Simulated scan of single mutants.
Amino acid sequence: SDDDCCNSCEEVREAYRKKGWGLSNPDLVDQCKREGFLEKIKNEEGEGCNVYGFLEVKKVGGNFHFAPGKSFQQSNMHVHDLLPFQKDSFNISHKINKLTFGEYFPGVVNPLDGVQWVQHSPNGMYQYFIKVVPTVYTDINGRTIQSNQFSVTEHFKSDDTGRLQSVPGVFFFYDLSPIKVTFMEGHVSFLHFLTNVCAIVGGIFTVSGILDSFIYHGQRAIKKKMEIGKFS
């Protein structure tokens, strides 16, 4: 029936994906040849994109990534259709303007903000391994913010063969730390402030007394030597 026919190249590719087949040469498919599928891919060469948004994930380790090709499930695996990128290199140069895990709180430092990386080899996979630390911040008014901090290490997996042996892209692998960090704001009492001031003033007087004693005894020693004629 007409409902089972593939009237466009995209429908053909989707049918192949559902069957778990590989579409090796789209030019042999009338729909793809008619629509100029490969020509469209070549015309998009060198283009980039700006990605922003939010992800809600479970509190377990996982990953998210930016990679070419349409993704689909095959044999319970997440795979990408890399057919349009088999003959050319894929540039994964990127800049991370902002990446956070949770709500902002005063003093938080996100180590990937403003990070930029430029690819020099033909193909590869850039990986960020992130350790997320749950954090609770309580301000001076008692308002609590449940958020996270994270540390990161980086690794570039190069493919020197010139062919795509693995999925090219930028991958973020994250894992949660079993340790929670708590920050609390609080007032310093006037008595505590006064004690600190007294300690500082006392320290200044003590140091001044030591210097004064050193100078005084030094002058006396020099004066005695001058009186007995031993100072030269």
Rank of each mutant, 00 (worst) to 15 (best):
Q219L: 12
Q74G: 05
S232P: 01
Q219H: 08
C32Y: 02
G124C: 10
I222W: 14
G107F: 03
S24P: 00
K230H: 01
G162P: 12
H94M: 08
V109Y: 13
D30S: 07
W21I: 07
F173T: 05
F90P: 03
P134M: 15
V197F: 02
I204V: 13
N50L: 04
T153E: 11
V12W: 15
Y16I: 04
E11H: 02
V108E: 08
K18W: 06
K18R: 14
T153C: 03
L38D: 14
V132M: 06
G107I: 08
L211D: 09
T138I: 05
H155W: 05
L164M: 15
K224Q: 10
Y104H: 06
N63V: 06
K95G: 05
D139L: 03
N110C: 11
P178A: 10
E103P: 02
K19H: 10
I41V: 14
Q86V: 12
R163Y: 05
N25C: 10
V133D: 08
Y216M: 02
D139W: 15
T153V: 07
Y104E: 09
S24R: 06
G102N: 06
Q165L: 08
D88A: 15
S166V: 11
H94W: 01
F183D: 12
F64R: 13
R220P: 00
T161H: 02
P68T: 02
I222N: 04
I222P: 07
Y216N: 01
G229F: 02
Y216G: 01
H65C: 10
G142R: 11
V133Q: 05
I92Y: 03
